[in-house]
Amino acid sequence: MKSKITEKPVSRRKMLQLLAALGITGPAATEILAQSKGGALSPEILKTANALIDQQFSDERLKVVTAALQRNLDQFQIVRDLEIDDSVEPAPIFNAKLR
């Protein structure tokens, strides 16, 4: 029987965990991440994405937003990684009648 292998890119968060397990932290870890394809953001990427959100940020501001957004994406990764059954619909708001 063949085993089913799902290839999934290593997330930035998981990459950092792996690096930490190897004793690589701080600026060294950040540098490795920057060189990896671990989904790290950059101000250039957000500058391009500015058009999508109809707002222009200065270069200086983009650096701040990039770091904050990267942090958020790391925090969300467990939600992105979560596999949810197709039957589960979004609950836009608490609805007592459905509870």
Partner: peptide
Amino acid sequence: RERLEAAKFYSATDYLKALRVRSILQ
């Protein structure tokens, strides 16, 4: 400011997935 500006880049897919998590939690 930092939180709100970063949130401008959140995707609708992420938002809706969070609402699906809400369904599970409920």
